[in-house]
Design a protein around this nucleic acid. Structure first.
Lengths: 212, 212
DNA sequence: TAGATTGTTAATCGATTAACAATC
DNA sequence: TAGATTGTTAATCGATTAACAATC
């Protein structure tokens, strides 16, 4: 990797991975840049350029081996080197992620969840123990945590993020819908703004409506 | 609106709206493109270009009035002209959205939710009735629905999407994590791929790790 | 009026697309 | 070998940034 890969390319990698997993499940063995482009709505050129940021996974005259390409892209994204994650806030959203989101497929080991509700503390969900939120501090001192999934009420977002970062949590997957304003050093925050997505849908929908 | 607005600009509008709401809550009355740029990590030029796609909201020598700009961008996104939405699938994720996602703020009226679980059908959550999933078909025949939030298990995604589209639902907010392959005519699908977001975070995290 | 800041045009930069030689 | 398709360089296109005249 000689130079910095652009964010545009990085954000396409998960899409490639998804499609390649699907092709593999469909027992497709090889795919050309043209074929993949048709499936994904991209040009063959772009696909070849993207892959060549990482030094080429293909074979001239043949195309790309699906499994090999899938593993190559998976490797770039690091799904084969698990990081440890915890969920902070086991409300509906937190529980939805614990129960239905397959962390392991994406290179994360979900170690524990935290909540303050007495009804939840001490129980476990899909194999993940739900621990007492007031013990988060202690837990972080005693266990290595790479990523925290922030699914608690907005009001606690910034202070919790600060606590997490101060204990060496290096990534925060932020579902609270507010931008964390606390200084987190070099902890990376990935914001999930569901409203952005819905607003975008609304824009295109209303645009269509007017045309009609 | 003389020409087609690029997707890049559209995807930035919700971010502007979010920041402007925050500024208004902080009782800031006016903001310059430079000031807003510093807050959001964008250049002043880009901000002025973006706004000028829609014909300019500012006043030379003064800047932008926060409330006016907020309402202007809100208007472009249509938050002032509500569309009707339903939630299909009231599992943890569906319930999280019903209870915590403020549809009304984003221009949507949540009319009902559907699920097949006998424990849920007939109850209501945060004012939204949860109806019997087997009645979805009938409901759609009798009620106008603009957008459906798809939060049911993957296995039902495509068939349900098809049903929705055939009844005139024009937008689908798809949380199932699979790309809907059924032909939906001109129904717009907005996919929420949470895994894409986490994989991206993982990439940047692991990159940092290597540097150190 | 003078200062500030927009709206808008021009310049630059980066990303996408096209082309083609390399090679399986 | 001939055909196919990549890897990679060159051309194009669009998006971002810079500059500045308009104007509040």
């Amino acid at each position: 990797m000689k130079y910095r890969i652009s964010a545009n390319v990085i954000r396409r990698l998960p899409r490639y991975l998804r499609r390649l997993k699907l092709l593999d499940r469909q027992e497709v063995e090889k795919v050309s840049s043209t074929g993949l482009g048709e499936l994904m709505g991209l040009t063959a050129s772009q696909i070849r350029q993207d892959f060549n940021c990482f030094g080429g996974f293909g074979q001239q005259g043949y195309g790309y081996n699906v499994k090999q390409l899938r593993d190559g892209i998976g490797g770039i994204l690091g799904v084969d080197k698990p990081l440890t994650a915890i969920v902070v806030g086991a409300g509906n959203l937190g529980r939805a992620l614990i129960a239905n989101f397959h962390f392991a497929s994406y290179g994360f080991t979900l170690a524990a969840a935290f909540d303050t509700s007495p009804a939840l503390v001490g129980t476990s969900l899909a194999g993940t123990p739900i621990l007492d939120g007031s013990r988060l501090d202690t837990y972080l001192s005693e266990n290595r945590v790479d990523v925290a999934v922030l699914t608690l009420p907005k009001a606690f977002a910034s202070s919790t993020a600060k606590l997490l970062a101060s204990h060496g949590v290096r990534g925060i997957w932020n579902f609270t819908g507010i931008d964390i304003d606390a200084d987190l050093g070099d902890t990376v925050v990935e914001d999930v703004h569901l409203s952005d997505s819905l607003l975008t849908l609304g824009y295109y929908l209303r645009g269509k409506q007017e045309q009609e």
